[in-house]
Amino acid sequence: MVKFEQIKGFVFDLDGVIADTSVYHAKAWRQLAEKLGVTWTDELADGLKGISRMDSLDLILKTGGIENKYTEAEKEAFAAEKNTNYLNLLKDMDATAILPGIADFLKDLEEHDYQLSLASASKNSPLVLEQLGLAMYFKNKIDPTTLKHGKPDPEIFARGAEVLNLKPEECVGIEDAKAGVQSINGAGELSVGIGDKNILSEADINFADTSELTLENIKKALD
């Protein structure tokens, strides 16, 4: 495993790591699902976590048994409608949505001259960071429109290291989803999983929640 002294950069997932935007995503998807006559369940909500917009829509349609009912153009329109719903809900988001300990952790990383990048496939991530008051930490972001593959493919985390001009082994990837941890591992970075260690068993380091995410705790875990 990598030594703590080798670490130069941190590549962050956004939802579930920096802030809980999944609440807003879930509300927006639920609005669309109910409009389409698809029953909303906790299982469906869980299945949508960490996957792309079009994959999420496909899962909703499949759950309702209506995956072959709509054209690609209609599906694109549904995805756009969901995004509009989401952006309207986001207007209420502020710094109170930052997950416990994250603001202090980002400040600490900056003070210790670590480089930071954001590995979010969301085109709305710049807006979310602005709303949270954290945009200044993430000058290095990946352009999601240039990505060819979604998680668990390693592309997004590999690009997270690239934009920092660092080798993968010099970076720590932080995720709260199984597909995200697989993406980090595939990219050859040190993976930190936030959440249930049974679900995130492939992570190199696991913390129960973001409040445990500190440089000191990462160092302890590596020692």
Rank of each mutant, 00 (worst) to 15 (best):
F4K: 04
F10H: 04
F12K: 12
D15F: 08
A28I: 10
W29F: 15
L32Q: 11
K35P: 04
T39V: 15
W40T: 02
T41M: 13
D42K: 14
L44E: 13
K49F: 01
G50V: 06
D55M: 06
S56Y: 12
E67Y: 13
A73Q: 12
K75P: 08
E81L: 15
N83M: 02
T84V: 15
N85P: 09
Y86L: 11
L87Q: 14
P100M: 13
P100G: 05
I102T: 15
A103S: 11
D108A: 09
L109Q: 11
E110S: 13
E111V: 07
Y114T: 05
L118A: 01
S120A: 11
S120F: 10
S125F: 08
P126L: 00
V128I: 15
V128H: 12
K139R: 11
K141S: 02
T146V: 00
L147N: 12
K151L: 07
P152R: 14
P152L: 13
D153T: 05
P154S: 08
F157T: 10
A158E: 08
G160A: 03
A161F: 00
K167P: 02
E169D: 11
E175D: 06
K178I: 03
A179Y: 10
S183Y: 05
G193D: 06
G195I: 01
D196G: 10
I205Q: 07
F207K: 10
D209H: 02
S211W: 06
E212A: 12
L213H: 12
